[in-house]
Structures are given as structure tokens and as C-alpha cells.
């Protein structure tokens, strides 16, 4: 199944990726190939088979005691941040 250019652009937007117009045909083509390839799954008969989200069957979520174990390390954590001021991470103006 071939993906249309509009579909590829829609997916890229949903994933917040900006594709160079020059790269678009290449993504269109390779994604179409991939979609074809995974489309093969359609032929598998899976009636009555429950989806499996985890590879280890029967394991359940473990719970953590409600304890504060973390300290304020924002100076350290913000060393990787491209733009901060007064302890805040900065982004272009968000309009609500």
C-alpha cells in the first residue's frame, strides 16, 4: 500500500518532524515499502489470540512505597537544558 505525500506529511507533523521537501519522495517510498512489508501481518490468523504487550507472561506491576526519596537537584539537571531562566525551562511563547 503506497502512502500518499499528504499522509507522510501528516505523520511527520504528528511526530513533530520537519522533512526537507527534497527528502520527501525518499520517505514516501521507503515508508510505503515498510507499510507493505508489515501489511503482511494481515494474513496471520489471530482469531481469539489476545494481544501481548510484555514478553514475560504473568508478571504484574510492582508497587513502590510512598516515600520522598529525591532531593532538589535542579541545578545539576538543568545543565543539559538549552535555555533556562530563574529555574524555568524556556520555550517560545505558548498561546492558549
Amino acid at each position: 500500500m503506497a502512502l500518499t505525500r499528504a499522509q507522510v506529511e501528516g505523520i511527520a507533523h504528528l511526530a513533530r518532524l520537519e522533512l526537507d521537501p527534497a527528502e520527501l519522495p525518499q520517505y514516501e517510498q521507503s515508508l510505503s515499502r515498510i507499510v507493505d512489508f508489515i501489511g503482511e501481518l494481515e494474513r496471520a490468523s489471530t482469531a481469539g489470540v489476545a494481544p501481548m504487550a510484555h514478553p514475560l507472561p504473568g508478571l504484574a506491576q510492582r508497587l513502590r512505597a510512598d516515600e520522598v526519596t529525591e532531593r532538589d537537584e535542579h541545578d545539576l539537571y538543568q545543565r543539559n537544558a538549552p535555555a533556562v531562566a530563574s529555574g524555568l525551562y524556556l520555550v517560545p511563547k505558548v498561546i492558549e
Binding site: 502512502l3 499522509q7 507522510v8 505523520i11 511527520a12 504528528l14 511526530a15 518532524l17 522533512l19 520517505y27 521507503s30 515508508l31 515498510i34 507499510v35 508489515i38 501481518l41 494481515e42 496471520a44 489471530t46 489470540v49 489476545a50 494481544p51 501481548m52 504487550a53
Partner: peptide, 29 residues
């Protein structure tokens, strides 16, 4: 980027069952 887009596609509305859920069923098989 290609994998992010593939993943975005298979999870998106209208394709989730056909791809993601189907793959998880095959995974169980």
C-alpha cells in the same frame, strides 16, 4: 526518523488495530 514515522503511523487512529494490535497478537503466537 523513518522508524518514528512508522511507529506514529501504526499507532494512529484507524491503523492501531490493523497493525499494532495485530502485531501484538502475532507476538503471542
Amino acid at each position: 526518523k523513518r522508524r518514528i514515522m512508522t511507529g506514529t503511523y501504526v499507532l494512529s487512529a484507524g491503523y492501531y488495530d490493523a497493525y499494532y494490535l495485530k502485531a501484538q497478537r502475532v507476538r503471542r503466537l
